[in-house]
Design a protein around this nucleic acid. Structure first.
Lengths: 109, 109
DNA sequence: TTTTCATGTGAACGTCTGCTCATACGTTCA
DNA sequence: TGAACGTATGAGCAGACGTTCACATGAAAA
């Protein structure tokens, strides 16, 4: 009906690759286990077994999730002997998490 | 091994309800169709059939997604005759989307 | 009051997801 | 070299998710 609104909305929708990138990011952040992992790594770099202990999941589950986070460049790691020490890939992730936290805490007021 | 790091990470993990709220938000934003809907509504309020046309999904699919977005307070609506006119619930949503967009465009550089 | 139009909703279906289990790989130490 | 440890990975499964289809609801038009 309102052709003007429709045209404006049409223009506001981002191209396919942008939408896809956005959903990939949010998809990575939407799981509680992954959020806990990222929150832990935001405080300190950690090896896999420590992450598992801290977030309360099995080593295997954590390893699977770390792989996903690695593939999306949200975390990076270095080998240290038999350990694999993970860290946040960059401050972008930290920022996104902080902003979402702001959102949550404001919602609750 | 590194007890200090573990303790710091342990402390950094948010309480259960916070993690759950965070994942709820990201979960709502992780689907391409929902992202398109929100992007469209960021430009202009729209009725369901216009949203469906703009985002290229069926009316039913859009209606289901709008329900989810409504339940999470990301969109609000008013009735206008037989139409249901939806809008973003508040500027928080807009901000989150913009920030994620920043993130995406920086990643691509 | 019947149609018609815009929207909402439940069931069903195929796909995706996150976990566990078993096992493989690579490093360190005896 | 062999055992022990930390990590990675594939298969399999149960549950969640997004869509379609059929139909119900409610408001406007005929």
């Amino acid at each position: 009906m309102d052709a003007e609104s429709v045209a404006r909305a049409q223009a506001a929708i981002h191209d396919e690759s942008t939408v896809s990138s956005l959903s990939d990011i949010f998809q990575a952040l939407c799981d509680p286990t992954r959020l806990r992992i990222l929150a832990a790594l935001a405080a300190s770099e950690l090896c896999v077994c420590d992450i598992a202990a801290v977030v309360g999941s099995s080593q295997s589950a954590v390893s699977h999730q770390l792989r996903l986070l690695r593939d999306r460049d949200l975390v990076a790691y270095r080998r240290d002997g038999k350990r694999a020490v993970y860290r946040l890939a960059d401050d972008h992730v930290r920022t996104l998490l902080e902003q979402a936290l702001d959102h949550v805490s404001e919602e609750r007021r």
